[in-house]
Amino acid sequence: MALFNKSDMQYDDYQWTAYPNDNPRVTGKPDSTRFNRHEGYEVLYLINALAEEWEFKNVASCLKMETMIREKLPSDTIMQTKVKEWIIKYWNS
């Protein structure tokens, strides 16, 4: 069960373009797929995948990650794995 839900998200201007279940972009873990910080499903997926991997227990950590992605993630950081690396690097700053 996901820790972070659409109703928890603090920004309301995301695009919500669903991908079919058989889409190769949906692998179940962050990978080298391009990441769009304005696509709600992509942001929600990545936050939940990382929250599960890092064993987050509260929504506040997910909100912090959402803010980092939206407000501070460099525009040239475009792959899910690179977003993950960037979050790890800047989590405590």
Rank of each mutant, 00 (worst) to 15 (best):
T33M: 09
R37I: 10
E66I: 00
Q10K: 10
Y11E: 06
T33Y: 11
E85H: 14
F4P: 03
Q10T: 03
Q15V: 08
P20V: 08
Q10H: 04
W91K: 02
I69D: 00
R70N: 12
L63K: 14
N92Q: 12
N36R: 04
K72M: 12
E53T: 07
Q10F: 09
M1Y: 14
V43K: 04
K57A: 09
R25M: 07
N23V: 11
E85G: 06
D31H: 12
K89Y: 11
Y90I: 00
D76W: 13
T81R: 09
W86I: 07
S93K: 13
V43I: 15
Q80Y: 09
I78E: 09
N92H: 12
C62I: 01
C62K: 00
A49Y: 09
N5R: 12
S75C: 07
M79K: 15
T81D: 14
G40F: 10
A18D: 15
E52W: 07
D13L: 03
W86Q: 06
K82L: 05
I87T: 00
A49F: 02
S32Y: 11
T17S: 11
Y11V: 06
W16K: 09
L3G: 01
G40A: 06
E55K: 06
I88L: 15
F4L: 08
L44D: 01
P20F: 05
R34A: 08
Q10S: 06
K57E: 14
E39T: 01
I87L: 15
E39L: 02
G40H: 09
N58F: 09
E39W: 02
V83W: 03
T81G: 04
W86R: 03
M9T: 04
D13M: 01
T27M: 12
I47V: 11
F35N: 05
V26E: 13
Q15D: 15
L46P: 05
E42L: 03
E71S: 14
D8A: 00
T27W: 04
Q80T: 02
F56D: 08
E53P: 01
W54T: 04
M9S: 06
F35G: 05
D8S: 02
E71V: 05
D22Y: 06
N23M: 11
A51T: 02
D31E: 07
D22G: 00
R70H: 13
C62S: 02
A18T: 15
I87V: 04
D8R: 01
D13T: 06
N92C: 11
R34S: 15
Q80A: 01
Y90F: 10
S32V: 14
I87A: 00
K72E: 13
K6Y: 04
M68Q: 13
Y90L: 00
V59R: 07
S7Q: 09
T67Y: 09
K82D: 14
K72P: 05
N36H: 06
F4R: 08
W54N: 04
M65H: 02
P20Y: 10
M68C: 04
T81H: 01
I88G: 02
Q15H: 13
A18G: 13
V59N: 07
T27K: 15
A60R: 13
E52R: 12
E52N: 10
G40Y: 07
V43R: 06
M65S: 01
S32F: 14
L46T: 12
Q10N: 09
R34C: 13
P30I: 01
K6T: 08
T17L: 08
A51L: 06
W54E: 04
K6C: 07
T33P: 08
H38K: 15
L44W: 03
E71A: 03
